[in-house]
Amino acid sequence: MKQRNEQLPPGIRGFLIRMGQIDRRWIYLAVAVAIAAPMLARLRFPEVPGRMAQATFDAIESIPPGSRVLIAYDFDPASAAELEPMANAVLHHCASKGHRIALMALWPLGKQLADDAIRDILLEYHPEKVEGVDYVQLGFKTGNEGVIKLMSTSIAEAYAADASGKPITQIPLLEGVRTIGDFQLIASISAGTPGAQQWVQYGDSAMPDAFKFVAGTTGVQSSQLLPYYPKQMEGMLIAIKGAAEYEMLVTEKYPVTRSADRLALGRERMGPQFVAHLLLIGLIVLGNVSMLAARGWKGAAR
């Protein structure tokens, strides 16, 4: 701020140099506007489904209707903004395809989110689904990756009953299900540890070759999980972009007639992403142009 008062060359060069030393609060303001404006204007940009999103879609699509699918809500409200859209889309996709869905959570608050999803997504779009037959909520279990280990030898040891206290032996959906290997697909929507990485590490041994595993992750975590694709992981949805792409694939094949905005969350949240990314790119360019201008000026002055 103090440097601003020193003598600067006139014209564009001076302006550029001054821009390079701009008070950071103007940047904050620009970020706020870049995010708030597209939200208020409800800007949406078309998405091109990427390889990962397509692979995830295909994994769920390729197993026959009536297959058993386990969706693990391994996140909490703090990362819900990033992960909830993909969790919603996965749930809707599985239900539309006619899979039988078991929901569970390795994070304590994940159970609440799964409950919300059952109410707002599953029963909203598929009111005909019956608890115990088409879906079951197993709830949260303490023990982190230990739960996965237990479930890979015996689900009954980890979950004696579902979230409402009904013994799992009395749940038609889980008839004949002994280990996680008896599910045709597991999807972990994960925000960290325990999450997708632990599912791969501890669940893999119990999974037969025909078994599929897909994950939805936060952007931060994605680079640690990439090595698992495509061998141990069929597909992966990375951050809100993955959610938006996948959402598009799902709603294209299985459109919904009411409350459609719940399955457009990902794309809606990509609007601010788009503008904010452009802003960041612009800032990097501006910073470098300004630096070059300053360097040239100092060089000339010398």
Partner: peptide, 15 residues
Amino acid sequence: FTVMGRITLLVGRFD
């Protein structure tokens, strides 16, 4: 990669 997640958080608060 992290930028995306951070912006989502702010979107959540504005939301």
